[in-house]
Design a protein around this nucleic acid. Sequence first.
DNA 1: CCGCCGATCAACCTTTCGGACGATGCGCGG
DNA 2: CCGCGCATCGTCCGAAAGGTTGATCGGCGG
Lengths: 206, 206
Amino acid sequence: MIDVVLADDHPVVRAGLRAVVDTQPDMRVVHETSTAEDLLAWLDGGGRADVILLDLRFGDARMGGAAATGAVVRRHRTPVLVVTTYGTDADILAAIEAGATGYLLKDAPTEELARAVRSAAAGEVALGADVQRRLLSRLRTPAENLSGRELEVLRLVAAGRSNDAIARELFVSVATVKSHLAHINTKLGTQSRTEAAAVARDRGML
Amino acid sequence: MIDVVLADDHPVVRAGLRAVVDTQPDMRVVHETSTAEDLLAWLDGGGRADVILLDLRFGDARMGGAAATGAVVRRHRTPVLVVTTYGTDADILAAIEAGATGYLLKDAPTEELARAVRSAAAGEVALGADVQRRLLSRLRTPAENLSGRELEVLRLVAAGRSNDAIARELFVSVATVKSHLAHINTKLGTQSRTEAAAVARDRGML
DNA sequence: CCGCCGATCAACCTTTCGGACGATGCGCGG
DNA sequence: CCGCGCATCGTCCGAAAGGTTGATCGGCGG
């Protein structure tokens, strides 16, 4: 029997995951949490599970799920299966780098979810079919000339922030932001922040 | 007894919605569909329901849920409650204009969802708390007072053009473009061209 | 008819951006 | 070990953008 913990701040999604898990004869939900703090507290308090189903947007949105994933993996040995509705390539990579055992989208078929849970419980890597496809297509086209930091800056630029605001948001100097932006414009072949934002939107880099 | 139809292409979300509905004593799920075509076919084939829970991203992503909502509302009288994970102001407005009875985000509490279903079944409007907040904040900042020319400029700004390029494109002087842009920033409450572009995108003004 | 608004332009000034340097430290792979 | 990419910061300068004020002109409605 595989003991599963659900960690998702959406009640509806939690109920959905529970429904899927409960209909599998070989697994059961042993705990539900809606915040990252609760999850860690439960685990620290002696909670035991074979797999944790974690929402990428779990808890604080800015941490992504990566921080929560990392915390769980570092402090406990429980495999973390990230389940999310959407997510960029960068999100997926971040989660995997943080130690997630698997990653799949919520629109994955029920059986795929169940299979992933079993794989994760067995310590195997379990990536959803579409996640695999995306990672592969990414390797084929290194469209991501942009470094992680540059992409971060680009996102804020596209959100309309000024260099100064971005600098404060990222805890760096304006000079650094300008430096990143210069590299972004070079790599994208753009002439200005606004044009870079437009191109980024078109290419789905956000 | 309120008969509910679930229309969502995410198996997990469907299961979650079903779990919520089934735990309410006064409602039940009578049908589930994963495509807009199936939903319409079921309704056309004599299917009866009191409320349809429809995912905004239901079916073809480009149609949004608005097209599906419109089709259902026009051909049948069933109240449609749009339930989605995310969505811009424009998405919400489009759904409501298409005839949706209500709109709420998937992270709404279980009771809020149940309440919304009862309201929708009774023919009342049911907007999620956060949806209401967003619509109100939008009304506070009058968006659509942009003149035709200003909107034209805004579009080019969002496309990443410089003032000079816009001026040449519209056969006016740079001063005029700057003048329009100044008015745009005033009306949108923005501080820069890039921020104006971001806001315009969010509000679906492009 | 006169006022208001939209569109057009101008001059002036301040702030912000962007380009062109250079410089440091860090980690990773040949 | 050394190079290279990444991230960090700095300076200088010119260009672009934004704010302010003010102006002309054409319609549209009271």
